[in-house]
């Protein structure tokens, strides 16, 4: 563990709390892509199958359980508790275009041909593009509630902070995980446009609005 990864994990944790807080205080999941959230459930469930086989630390195990549980809870909030506020008609990104290619990539690039390793690889690739339905929705509506942008910024910062973690691990342990690094770079890259608007508008106190 190093400071970058720890801050990344905290940022990830914060993003989930911000999202749940937004849904509960506004009593609405308006502006949140159900598809992105559903993909996250798939990401966490497929990645953390190692909960049954590998024990790393209490920290590691609790975080994994928290990410699975909280992502399922968010789906519950969206599909049951605040269902009327969820508008599928603007959440139109075709998720199958993400899952298909990621499944192919996972079959080609993995660290061993076992069910858990291929699913782990799939989860890494899927996570890197999971935000696309959400960003697509943002693009379509052209604006977002400020709290939603804080959620996205924290979520984007999580993988961005893993990049210095990987550099650090390379120099301190000689450890390289090419699958995670490649996917992590792609994932962070997808946020660059968003980060630009977030830093130049939202953090200056303006509303998040995309140019028409």
């Amino acid at each position: 563990m190093n400071i970058f990864r720890f801050l990344g994990d905290l940022s990830h944790l914060a993003s989930i709390f911000i999202l749940i807080h937004k849904i509960q205080t506004t009593r609405s999941c308006r502006g949140i892509s159900f598809k992105t959230q559903a993909v996250y459930v798939a990401v966490f469930v497929t990645r953390y199958l190692d909960l049954f086989t590998t024990f790393v630390s209490v920290y590691n195990t609790s975080m994994k359980i928290f990410f699975i549980a909280s992502s399922c809870y968010i789906l519950y909030l969206m599909k049951v508790r605040f269902r009327p506020t969820n508008d599928p008609s603007i959440d139109t990104f075709r998720v199958e275009y993400l899952v298909g290619p990621c499944a192919v990539l996972a079959l080609i690039f993995n660290y061993g041909y076992s069910v858990t390793e291929v699913l782990w690889s799939l989860s890494i690739f899927l996570e890197s593009v999971a935000i696309l339905p959400q960003l697509f929705m943002l693009q379509r509506t052209g604006e977002a509630e400020t709290i939603t942008t804080h959620y996205l910024a924290a979520l984007g910062a999580y993988r961005a902070l893993y990049i210095p973690n990987w550099i650090y691990r390379y120099f301190s342990e000689g450890y390289v995980d090419p699958i995670s690094v490649t996917a992590g770079l792609v994932q962070t890259g997808l946020y660059l446009d968003f980060f630009y608007v977030y830093f130049t508008k939202v953090l200056q106190g303006q509303k998040f609005e995309l140019p028409a």
Partner: peptide, 10 residues
Amino acid sequence: EEVPGHHDEL
């Protein structure tokens, strides 16, 4: 037993 790197990252 050594834990492979990708199991300790989240």
